[in-house]
Design a protein around this nucleic acid. Structure first.
Lengths: 217, 217, 217, 217
DNA sequence: GATGAATGAGGCTTCATTCAT
DNA sequence: CATGAATGAAGCCTCATTCAT
């Protein structure tokens, strides 16, 4: 029925790889169709396995969903904190680097789907939403207030309400992610990210700097 | 079985009476639980009618959903355009007034749910998402580029990429809406809107103005 | 599609009758195939309704099962206690009357299925089995020890261990029930109940009486 | 794929090795949970092998069930007939010895589960139930009628309907078995077997004897 | 022989939709 | 117009069975 090579391939991707394939397929579909709108059979099919196989790794749809969030949250915040910790230089440069690095490593990847998912499904999974809040929102806010504190201390930034400004900085990043998903679903030409991000950085730096002359584009 | 006149009356009713209670209940639940996660029985119960009655006004769940979006889109963009059109004054003041007015009349009302809904359900209803894009996104972007053009023409604003800047202005507004829903679902203390919006206006104006000295808080 | 009379019949048996029809169908099938072996679709079909209708009255298979037991337990013990309470006369006659009456009103009816069910499903539903023990076993034992005490007091019966003798009396009654179900399932000629019961009464009375000469067949 | 000799060896093994562990585990679980309620994975786990191994010995769940019954039926009836055949003495003593011996060697062992199983599953396996009827019920009835005939011939017993009386004798034995399982499932204190059996013998002998004076307890 | 990952038919359950009243 | 009982398609989940290792 099946050629030897087919069989081989079938068996090469194995026990270890399975959960990742399933999680990946599940993330795609949960992001696309929402939790309730996603059929486990489709998740399994997309991962190249049968319905029953899914249950060898995840005991229920809800557990699969939780795993999708949990497994993708660590990479997400880990990546971001890495981008942040690695940098040595002016706060201005860090600001720019932080945003562009975030876009490259999160915003423009599948990980962005987690953010969309949480905005959509918080009502159905408050527990997980709280977990996401604690692990992603709080920590990313802390990173940004940290950045702002640093810039204020160095005299680069004006004295601003760092908590509120952190929210303000996250907003265009989050929306960029959400819009990409939205436009993709609509099959409408998406907003060009490069220009969007450059404009974002430009206007925010002007709004934040003590001496806008320092900001030369 | 039924005379033509009966049918007529019935259909006139369907058009006219399409009760706000049902649309309102549906909006609430669609926003809270998503399309697939919302049960029509719950919608009916919340509207104080029976499940069967719902079908007197909407021929299917999908039609109800479309109606919820359609019926709330006009108020949404209508309110916004009204806010915008009414104003006569400096572009700086209009910017501030536009944002605060939007918050008061849309962001802080049930209408905000439509925005959340579209972000969540675009994947399941690309048709409706495109409709929303045409009616809301495009028109609101136009309003903002208009505002920016005016400010640039008057010399108040720097010369910026008005399309991209319009996106950038919408982002904190949208996110404010989404966060309110998110935090409410999590039962976590929400971000205080007043401070958020003031900081938003402050930083954006500094980022936009030709002469930041014009911007006195 | 359906004649008027069919429709009528369909609607004549209504809300009130439905649960009873479902319980009756469920009892039949649970007795025949066991709990796990019974398909709710078959229960519904036997009751003349669809699968979904069943869920209007019972929230799950387990709840249906519990209801089957609960609803049939009261009649069961009620009938028996009535048989017992009505009788005025010698303990010998009561003994005979009790057994024959039990057979007629329980053993030879669908109610007998409950006893079989409990013997089969106690392992899967210990909770319900304990309920059955408390409501049926304990109370029926009490009735019989009561009967024996009375006969001993009147000098009709020997002094016997009334608890153990009550068990001994219940055994042939229970087995008669179980055998009827068993033979029916096997499609083998069942044990003729009349002769069985007469022989039962005869031998037991001889075993119990102080003066066997009182026992004239 | 496999040579004929391989197949042969494989099949010889299947016949020979059919491991007692699997049959024993299966008996336990079938008795506890019923046929449909028993999962083969649990049977395998209890026998200390994997699910796949079970299929090396039994080609299906149904075959396993049949084997459980078949393999335990011979011991059952064999034990009983042995008890019966060994005895030389009065029919009164044989009666007592038969009952106590049966209890010790069957009623109080796992073999009792087969009886329970047949009462529960006759509806699902009429074939096997008929087999059980032929091999166990008929033969044990024959043994008892035999015993009664002997006692009547010797003048020890009254002239009774030996077929019906055989049923009457089996009833308390069967019920003792079933009750033990039932009470164990309920975790309720079981009926003490010794007293039960003694009372059983006492009352039955009084009921059967020609001259009750012969029966001295 | 033994293993356990994989399969998919089948059962329980939900819920959008219909329709007699 | 309104009701809510009834329906049945569809999705979640289980578990008997298979099969590559």
């Amino acid at each position: 029925m099946t050629s030897i090579s087919t069989v081989k391939i079938r068996w090469e991707r194995r026990k270890d790889a399975r959960p990742q394939e399933l999680l990946s397929a599940a993330l795609d579909l949960f992001v696309k169709s929402g939790y309730a709108g996603t059929r486990l059979e489709d998740v399994a099919k997309r991962a190249g396995v049968s319905k029953g196989t899914l249950y060898l790794y995840f005991s229920s749809k809800e557990e699969l969903f939780k795993a999708v969030v949990r497994e993708n949250i660590l990479p997400m915040i880990g990546e971001a904190e890495q981008v942040f910790a690695q940098y040595q230089g002016s706060s201005i440069d860090l600001f720019r680097y932080f945003i562009l690095g975030w876009w490259e490593r999160i915003g423009d990847t599948k990980l962005s789907g987690i953010g969309k998912l949480m905005m959509s499904e918080a009502g159905n999974f408050p527990e997980i939403a709280r977990f996401y809040h604690a692990e992603i929102i709080t920590r990313s806010t802390a990173m940004i207030t940290n950045l702002l504190d640093r810039g204020i201390a160095s005299g680069e930034f004006r004295k601003v309400d760092t908590f509120q400004t952190a929210q303000l900085i996250k907003a265009p990043m989050m929306m960029m992610m959400l819009w990409q998903h939205f436009y993709s679903a609509c099959q409408i030409e998406p907003i060009p990210p490069k220009e969007y991000l450059e404009n974002f950085i430009d206007i925010y730096l002007r709004g934040l700097l003590n001496d806008p002359k320092n900001h030369t584009h």
